[in-house]
Structure formats: structure tokens, C-alpha cells
Nucleic acid binder design. Structure first.
Lengths: 209, 209
DNA sequence: GTTTGTGAATGAGTTCACAGCA
DNA sequence: TGCTGTGAACTCATTCACAAAC
């Protein structure tokens, strides 16, 4: 019944899935209680794994009954810090950045894109997905204004390291980076990389020989 | 000096990184040999890890010297099946699908998007990133024509499972899915999920408390 | 001296199995 | 009987350490 000293990252990722499952259920004809078996079935995870993951943060269930759906959902949302809206800024208004700015999956899940930046004068001032593209020079000021703790990077590889540094000095605490290549971030910033081309490359490896 | 019985997925992902590092070097003033230490430094991985990963597939290096750069690059490309062009089809021509269709990172790394599909009649026939959007009814025929082994899914969650089945029956062997939620695929298809919203959610968890 | 390849040791995460509770 | 919570066993991956090769 520990709190959260060192929870595996894979477990955190699964918790996000559980939360999504519960939120979806909560909108339909919601049962009052749900078992780890049912959560696991809907999340594609074993019941054991579900219980173990949850046990890192406390005891939320009742033996022989299951987990109170709304109760567990509230706890998970708080654990994941998705009980309040999180503001993110997006750097890079190219194809990928524009797509992310319009991506409905962010807004519908507790995130709000607060501003969209680019360095290209031709893009600055244009409207993309409801945002007026701002010059990246305003990053520092705007991050403070918005109280944004998260930055999303969708710029070419060559500009990536520079943008990380800019976001860091602006006070952002977490960064999701879509640019490929190795990037360095400071101690007090959590950097997460998603490399779309690499995902494809890994798939190619598993093609039948 | 084993071949490749069961290589960890994390190792495969790193191999893709090593290949990228070598390819980048190969374009500049390329040294003839490179050590595991240098590869590791550029890839953000320990030298031990580099050697262990490579050792799953053979002995490519020379003690006291290092790895022949072009030699190793060729081997890695063949291991990752990136020595020949891989054709992928993309389903979903919305914002994300359009961005992916235009994403330069695919083309520059041995992949070619062969066709772009959608189910919405308003989108079919339009040109997106150089592709004429085709109706998803033509998926089966076109996959065969193109010899595509890879499918990329960028459709809403509700349509995702249906598209997986369609790609599967069209003969695709690997699928990269950007739709959230649990999806099932058959035995002989490799399914890989990337959930952009979940990546953000995981970041939120690590925000300072 | 330098660097590879790899068995052994360590560490991390998942699955098992069962006690405890409703 | 049904289900949770969790220590123990197990599996998987990384790190260590060193012999062999240059």
C-alpha cells in the first residue's frame, strides 16, 4: 500500500490507459463497481497487472466487490495530474505542428494548447487550428503568462536542441519532442521523445523474413 | 555470436538509432572505423549496450580497432530490412494523416508512402502531399498492386478496429496505429501503437508535485 | 594500450499464488 | 464464492568484468 517512490514508467503508461477506460465507461451506462479483470480486459492487460499497478498508489478496491468506478477514476485522475487542466505550448507550425495543434485528442483529455510558435516569419501571424502563430522570441514571456508547464516540439532536427534549451529557460517542466536524434535536457526537466520514423523502422525489422 | 532468436524490442529500437548515427556520419567526413564508445555517445547509450545489441546478430567489429563504418552500416540496414525501399499505405487523410503523408522523415529513411486512403467522399479525389486520396474500398487491390507490407492508421478511434481488419485482409504484415484505445490484430500481423495523447498524459504524471 | 565479444552478476518488471476480506 | 492486495518466484534486460584479438 505504498505511495509512489519509483513506479515503472510502463506502469504509469498503463494507468493512463485505465483512466481512459474508466472515463469511457463513465459516460455510458456505468456500473457502480468494476473488477480488475474487466479493467484489464478493456485495457488489454492482465488482471494481476492492473492490481499491481494500482497498488503502487494505495488501496482503492474492496475485496469480493471490485473498484468503485467513480472513486477509482477520481484517484487515477489525481495521480496522473489530470484532475486539472494542463496548459502546453507547441513549438513548430509546420505540417506536424499544425496537425498537433488541431489534434482533438489533446483538448478532450485535459490538455489545452495555449500557444503555437514558429521561427519562420512567413508563418508568424498566420492562423492554424484557431491559433495565431507567434514568433518564438515571445516564448519566454508567453509561457509565464499562460502558466504552461509542458512544451511540445515539432521542429526539424537541427533546431530541436535549441528549442529544448529555450523551453527549459522559459520554465517549462516537461517536454514532448517529435524531432529525431539524441537531445539533452537539464535535470529538472522531463524529456520524452517520440520518433515517428523510428517506429516505422522497428516495424520493418519484424516483417517476415 | 548468435543470430536473432529473441532480441528485445528495446534493442531493435536502439539498432535503428545506431543506423541513423552511422548514416549521418557517412555523409560527412567519415572515419573508416568507429568504436562502440563513439556510437554510444552519439546515440545516448552505453558502449556495453551497443556491443551487446550488435552481438545478437553477429561479430561485426575488430578488437582494438572498432567497427568498419560502411561495413556495419550495411549490416544494420540489412538487419533492419532498410536496405530496400519499404512501401507503406496510409489510411486516414485528416489532419494527422495529412501531416504524416507530408512527413519528410519517412521518405528520407527508406520508406515510401504508396497511397493514401479515406472513407469520406469529400476527401476522396483531393490531393494531399502529392497523393490523390483514394477511397478505402480500393485498399485491397492497391495494397496488392503496390506490394505494400506496412499500413499506417490515422483515423478516429471508432474506425480503427475496422481499418486494422481491412489492412490485415489486404495482406499487410505490419501496422503502425495512431488511434487510441485497445485494438486487436491477428497472429501474423505486427501491430504497433503510438498514442499521442497518452504520451502527454505520462508527462503530466512526472510534473513536479 | 585499445577495443571487441560474452558469460556472469545484478537489477527491473511481470506473473504467480495465496492469505485476507466481503 | 468472488475479488483484492502483496510477498515470492520467475523472466527478461542491462551492466559488469574479463579473456581474446589487434
Amino acid at each position: 500500500m505504498s505511495t509512489n517512490p519509483n513506479v515503472p514508467d510502463a506502469a504509469v503508461s498503463r494507468l493512463a490507459t485505465y483512466l481512459r477506460v474508466l472515463s469511457a465507461l463513465s459516460e455510458g451506462e456505468a456500473p457502480e463497481y468494476i473488477s480488475s479483470a474487466e479493467i484489464g480486459r478493456q485495457a488489454g492487460v492482465s488482471p494481476d497487472q492492473v492490481r499491481k499497478d494500482l497498488s503502487h498508489f494505495g488501496e482503492f478496491g474492496r475485496s469480493g466487490v471490485g473498484y468503485g468506478l467513480e472513486h477509482l477514476r477520481g484517484h487515477l485522475a489525481r495521480i496522473m495530474r489530470l484532475d486539472r487542466e494542463q496548459v502546453a505550448v507547441l513549438v513548430g507550425a509546420g505540417h506536424l505542428g499544425s496537425a498537433l495543434a488541431r489534434y482533438p485528442g489533446f483538448g478532450s483529455r485535459g490538455f489545452r494548447i495555449g500557444a503555437l510558435f514558429d521561427i519562420d516569419p512567413k508563418r508568424v501571424g498566420q492562423t492554424v487550428g484557431g491559433f495565431e502563430v507567434e514568433h518564438v522570441d515571445h516564448l519566454h514571456r508567453r509561457v509565464a503568462e499562460l502558466g504552461a508547464a509542458i512544451g511540445v516540439i515539432a521542429v526539424p532536427q537541427t533546431a530541436c536542441q535549441w528549442v529544448v534549451a529555450a523551453l527549459e529557460s522559459a520554465g517549462v517542466k516537461a517536454i514532448l519532442n517529435f524531432a529525431p536524434g539524441a537531445v539533452q535536457a537539464g535535470e529538472n526537466v522531463n524529456l520524452r521523445n517520440v520518433d515517428l520514423a523510428r517506429e516505422l523502422e522497428c516495424l520493418a525489422y519484424y516483417l517476415p523474413r
